[in-house]
């Protein structure tokens, strides 16, 4: 009796492993997902020179205006940034969102030319030339986008380009709900 059970053991192990692999494949488990420790915490420090000549520097005060803010790290050399750009244009122009753009490891004139060509949806724009601010924000690359509520708490962190779905299902409800 117990010997027969012993023979079932390898089969059981196989079934367990197959189950795990199937779940990994079907549930869209991404072992490379970094997650974000920033969500639920106050937004990191912000102190950057303005991208556009004549603008005031980018400081923490912009994140504590009492209104929800989106912070978008981008670069003119980054193709996915190009892909998500129309969504920010829509957010800025049609939805009245306050968006802070931060050019990450991007030369000033290149970032400016990029925005001139595609349209500039940013209320304020900063320049993080050496990537130090990016590191403080837990950035892993560009584009990344943070949604910050009126009290300066990070509520969402998107790694990679935002999509139409992110916009409709997360960002717009957040902008409407957060005070």
């Amino acid at each position: 009796m117990s010997r027969r059970l012993l023979f079932l053991l390898p089969l059981l192990t196989l079934a367990l492993m197959a189950g795990f692999f199937a779940w990994s494949l079907l549930a869209g488990r991404d072992p490379a997902a970094i997650g974000s420790v920033l969500v639920g915490r106050p937004a990191p420090h912000l102190d950057l020179p303005a991208l556009r000549a004549g603008d005031p520097p980018i400081t923490d005060a912009l994140l504590k205006s009492g209104k929800p803010v989106l912070v978008n790290f981008f670069a003119s050399w980054c193709a996915p940034c190009l892909a998500e750009h129309p969504l920010f244009t829509r957010l800025g122009e049609r939805e009245g969102a306050t968006i802070i753009g931060i050019a990450w490891k991007n030369k000033r004139d290149e970032a400016e030319a990029w925005l001139k060509r595609l349209g500039d949806p940013f209320k304020s724009a900063g320049l993080d030339l050496d990537g130090k601010t990016g590191l403080d924000w837990g950035l892993s690359g560009v584009p990344e986008t943070y949604a910050i509520d009126g009290n300066g708490i990070v509520r969402m962190h998107f790694r990679g380009p935002i999509t139409e779905r992110d916009l409709n299902e997360s960002i717009l409800p957040f902008l409407k709900g957060a005070k």
């Binding site: 869209g28 991404d30 990679g160």
Partner: peptide
Amino acid sequence: MFTTGRRGPSTARLWRSGRG
């Protein structure tokens, strides 16, 4: 509230512009 992670593993590497 929530973080990212809805993107499938296949696309995860495609959009990342890490430069090298």
